[in-house]
């Protein structure tokens, strides 16, 4: 079952076509990798899907709901969550408050005004912090965490919304090999309830966790299919892998 469908997505900036008729599908419980050389349009496609940018043409459907022109909050409420390429945590808030901010997003404004759900949500916040090995740092300001921990915190924030599809833009950038391995271990369990669309330069990481891949080059899809199939594709080797 196709959970996320981006059909014929084009994005034009002035005279530059960043995306040119891109199709992309992510199935339920699937980890899908989006790879390509620098400037191939990966992040632009992710932004169009997340609502940070509007596609010039094409359509985006999430679980049967057309979200092509929807604002970011609407997409989030429809089940889409995003981790940015540049870490975008809330540095002056505690680690706990960062996750609480995400967990409580589904509560009504009245409940937030009266703080009526704070106690109820505590267990959930702590569960996320423990899962991402941040429970010891819960009272620290998020801004003082190490780079790797900040990345984990942002993934925890994105997952705390309980999305249907999680979009991750270079989650392991700047991480040590140990942190990369740990990130893979942290992501593996979400497969049971969430699909993943991941942009990543680390091909070993992509091979390890993704079921399928889409390869972009100059704003177009070069190949798409299972990870094993795409790895063997000669066009991919020419367009991308040979240049890595």
């Amino acid at each position: 079952m196709k959970l996320l469908e981006a059909r014929a997505i084009s994005k034009v900036y002035g005279s530059l076509a960043a995306l040119d008729g891109v199709d992309l599908y992510v199935r339920a419980n699937e980890f899908h990798g989006l790879i390509g050389p620098n400037g191939s349009g990966k992040s632009t496609l992710l932004k169009c899907i997340a609502g940070a940018e509007f596609a010039t043409s094409g359509s985006i459907v999430l679980a049967g709901q057309d979200i092509t022109r929807a604002t970011s909050p609407t997409r989030s409420r429809a089940g889409l969550s995003l981790k940015f390429q540049i870490t975008a945590i809330f540095p002056e808030l505690s680690v706990y408050d960062n996750v609480l901010l995400s967990v409580q997003a589904g509560e009504s404004m009245a409940a937030q005004i009266f703080s009526s759900s704070r106690r109820r949500l505590d267990e959930k916040v702590m569960a996320f912090l423990e899962r991402f090995r941040l429970d010891d740092r819960r009272d620290d300001l998020a801004g003082v965490l190490s780079h790797g921990q900040q990345q984990w915190l942002e993934i925890a924030i994105a997952l705390a919304r309980e999305p249907k599809v999680l979009l991750l833009d270079e989650p392991t950038a700047g991480m040590s090999p140990q942190e990369r391995r740990a990130t893979g271990e942290l992501l593996a369990p979400i497969r049971s309830h969430c699909s993943l669309l991941i942009v990543e330069h680390d091909l070993d990481f992509i091979r390890d966790i993704c079921d399928s891949l889409t390869v972009l080059d100059q704003g177009r899809v070069v190949a798409t299919g299972s990870t094993a199939e795409v790895q063997k594709d000669e066009r991919v080797k020419e367009a991308y892998l040979a240049n890595v």
Partner: peptide
């Protein structure tokens, strides 16, 4: 800009 992506 980030907080809108959480649904707020």
């Amino acid at each position: 800009s980030r907080i809108a992506f959480l649904g707020y």
